[in-house]
Amino acid sequence: MFEARLIQGSLLKKLVDAIKELCTEVNWDISNSGINMQSMDGSHVCLVAFNLRADGFDHFRCDRPLTLGINLGNLAKILKCSGSNDIITMKADDNGDTLTLMFESEKQDRITDVDLKLMSIESEHLGIPDQDYSAETSMPSSEYQRIVRDLSSIGDTVNISATKEGIKFSAMGDIGTANITLRQTSSADKEEENVKIEMKEPVLLTFALRYLNNFAKATPLSSTVQVFLTKDLPVQVNYNIQDLGYVKYYLAPKIEE
């Protein structure tokens, strides 16, 4: 028996909206420590992983580990039936073939329950070693969103370089070129509005903007985003979901043939 009650149900909706375009059919691994998912996109270019900790839920029960095969598009359709202030409860039996979602309004005067059919999904799991990053940047998630959106109107790929000057995003296309440089700041009113750059060594990597733009769909989940760059390795883009967990994206770089 699995049962989890999330007071801030809108977080679940935002999470599914943040990943559904990259991964359509995924396994959620449920254990008494929480809910985990890891899935590559169809072209095996990027990977999405999330963790929702059991202690982030108002109530969490999992008698034995379960794997729930979920079509995220269908789950997103169901979550559209929930109100933005609804409390969401998820339930599944140990050998069941459905996930029950219950939406309770704030005043608990309206209750919706929906059964989502589960699927059997063959999934591949990647082992991601702990990495020693060349450069780690923390910035407002709205800033990241704006950079990748703005550069998408210039070109399809972006060069990201971290130097002692700051972190520079450069795009080149038929209409011209654009560079956006972020410098470290410390003067913002709120800590999360600052740009922090921790650089161990200069690094330059090239990525497809389409994917970086897709990662920005997680912006509503967190006010900040961390971008980890490592020489010759995939970029990691992390959104921490306050008091609940995280969603992380990994994207393989483009390389010269």
């Binding site: 270019v45 990977l47 799991h125 990647l126 790929t157 393989a252 043939e257």
Partner: peptide
């Protein structure tokens, strides 16, 4: 022009 690499080039399938 650079080509897109895939993740299996970096991470092992478990």
């Amino acid at each position: 022009t650079p080509v897109q690499n895939n993740l299996e080039e970096y991470y092992a399938l478990l």
